[in-house]
């Protein structure tokens, strides 16, 4: 009895091995083509970009000679790049600070009344959230047309003359900041609102009886609970601000006098208008490091938040 059983299993072993080999092949056949797409369109280009950033490239973008860090040096030697960095820094800091604080205020205003609010209010508030950035930029462009636009008409009505808002570097950058705040503050408010709603009702009830006027308890209890969500929203806002390129295209093309030339627009220009592939590759590498660190960070923060509450 037992001998037949062992011979049976012995006979089955190669069969099983062949079947498991077949199963492996099937699994690879399902998984490898999509993985290959990622490798071809993300990993390999990234490697080539990294490689090219250390090489001297000809006009057609082929590597001709090792250049060490010369591409990076050329990038940082350009005064235009300094201005671009400065613009991006000013824009990002202003946009993120304003956007996150307004979003926070909005989420506090909205807390507990989304269900009771009228549809008109919600549509008005969240209409910028659901439209593309290009459309939002066009709306503001239309709004700010010199002489003819709404803003100038109001100014004239108030007797304040007119102003070409997109014609001066400072005001043009401020318009970009306003556009960012207008577009994204309600969106980020939704996240903060979700954070507020995740606070258990007994906390609110306890705070209400303990401290009905509530500033101290807000600062001591609600803010610390919301901190992970605030951190997540802030990293996301930084990411969005640094990646801003659509409104630059639609509104100013980087002008006037490079006053709104932000880093993504500069990268686009380096690659597709100036054809200086080497510095473009160097800038891509730097952006890749910065942006993916940030988005990785936001994921970690979010994970911690999820861990926190579950």
């Amino acid at each position: 009895m037992s001998t037949t059983a062992t011979t049976l299993t012995a006979a089955a072993a190669p069969l099983r091995a062949r079947r498991s080999l077949l199963a492996w092949c099937l699994r690879y056949a399902l998984v490898l083509p999509p993985a290959a797409v990622v490798v071809i369109f993300v990993a390999w280009p990234l490697w080539v970009t990294l490689y090219h950033s250390f090489f001297q490239l000809d006009a057609r973008g082929h590597a001709v000679a090792f250049a060490g860090s010369k591409n990076y040096q050329a990038l940082f030697a350009s005064p235009l790049f300094h201005q671009v960095l400065w613009n991006t820094a000013v824009y990002s800091v202003l946009a993120v600070v304003l956007c996150v604080s307004i979003a926070f205020g909005l989420s506090l205003l909205l807390y507990g009344r989304v269900a009771a609010s009228s549809r008109a209010l919600l549509v008005a508030l969240f209409s910028p959230t659901v439209m593309p950035m290009i459309a939002a930029a066009n709306i503001w462009l239309y709004f700010l047309i010199p002489q003819f636009g709404m803003v100038d008409q109001l100014l004239r009505w108030a007797g304040l003359g007119h102003e070409n808002w997109l014609g001066h570097p400072g005001t043009a950058l401020l318009v970009m900041v306003m556009l960012f705040v207008w577009k994204y503050a309600p969106y980020f408010a939704l996240f903060l609102l979700a954070g507020l709603q995740a606070i258990p009702p007994d906390v609110w009830e306890a705070l209400r009886t303990e401290d009905p006027y509530g500033w101290a308890s807000f600062r001591r209890v609600i803010l610390p609970i919301l901190r992970p969500m605030l951190a997540f929203v802030t990293t996301m806002a930084v990411l969005y601000a640094v990646e801003t390129v659509d409104p630059v295209f639609a509104m100013t093309q980087g002008g006037p006098n490079n006053g709104t030339n932000l880093v993504m627009f500069y990268l686009y220009n380096l690659g597709f208008n100036y054809y200086s592939w080497g510095p473009a590759a160097a800038l891509s590498v730097l952006l890749m490091i910065g942006l993916s660190t940030l988005s990785g960070l936001s994921l970690i923060v979010l994970e911690r938040r999820a861990f926190h509450w579950q």
């Binding site: 071809i40 993300v42 990234l46 990785g296």
Partner: peptide, 23 residues
């Protein structure tokens, strides 16, 4: 293989835009 897909999430398209265009 899982890491390859995770990689795709983290890398922004802007970083590989020029090479993808040339491809």
């Amino acid at each position: 293989i899982t890491l390859i897909f995770l990689f795709q999430v983290v890398v922004p398209i802007y970083a590989v835009m020029i090479q993808d265009y040339r491809m």
